[in-house]
Design a binder for these strands. Structure first.
Lengths: 125, 125
DNA sequence: GCTTGACCTGTGAGTTACGCACAGGTTGTA
DNA sequence: TACAACCTGTGCGTAACTCACAGGTCAAGC
């Protein structure tokens, strides 16, 4: 993970020693801690990059931070609802299938269990 | 999407016509409908490929289908819980930040809003 | 001094389910 | 015959890593 962050330029270890090994100073460790905190709060790596670059230029990233997390809360709510919908669909399917036997496929059908949901209203046509 | 499914071999249009256009027979349309139903039920494309290949060899995929969806229900439950945890964390952060002013970054700190969560118990180390 | 094994390095590729762009071929219409 | 509106395959980009690889470095033991 540290290798990856270094690769994409999110971490910049202070120096290559003459043996080729990277040297991480305490500031680098602090930066890594920051990244992990931000990730825990739902920030993506590219957002974190924006934030740290902003800060590295001496500008306060706090406004950006507040805005991002507000958006993220909304996005997340939508995702959670979609996943709950899916969960209900899966559970319903499993229950329906309890009373159905396995079938053998023919040219027209792949799996009648799945195809039994054919008539359900499908949002995308 | 159809182009993509054809590319990865999930859809196999019956023939190339002599003008180079693909010809989708009704079986292909049926196959596409199957794919979309399965996706709606939480199956991934590679699972769908396994299922259809199984069926194309005349073997019943129903057992596999039941097993996959049972696993998926468990996975999904875990994911939903993780997202709810995240959602709580984000909302808590936003609330905490309401009473905090923006700050200017210095060498040691990037954004004090985010760093104010430093002391929270972090599962990974 | 030499060998071994445990470290470290950068980099390429794979993961999911597409979307977009590109260069080029085909078709129908004015 | 010009042109727009289709179609084709293919390559690249997405997020956040992980794995594998080939090779360099270091400490310990013989």
């Amino acid at each position: 993970m540290v290798r990856y962050y270094t690769r994409i330029g999110l971490l910049k270890p202070r120096a290559q020693q003459e043996n080729g090994y990277r040297l991480f100073a305490s500031q680098d460790a602090q930066r890594l801690r920051f990244i992990r905190l931000a990730k825990r709060l739902g920030f993506t790596l590219s957002e974190i990059r924006e934030i740290t670059e902003h800060a590295d230029h001496g500008k306060s990233p706090c406004g950006k931070v507040r805005r991002i997390i507000q958006d993220r809360i909304k996005e997340n709510r939508a995702k959670i609802e979609a996943m709950l919908t899916l969960q209900n669909r899966m559970e319903e399917a499993l229950k329906t299938w309890e009373s159905m036997p396995d079938g053998v496929p023919d040219g027209d059908h792949v799996c009648h269990l799945i195809e039994s949901f054919e008539s359900d209203d499908d949002p995308d046509r």
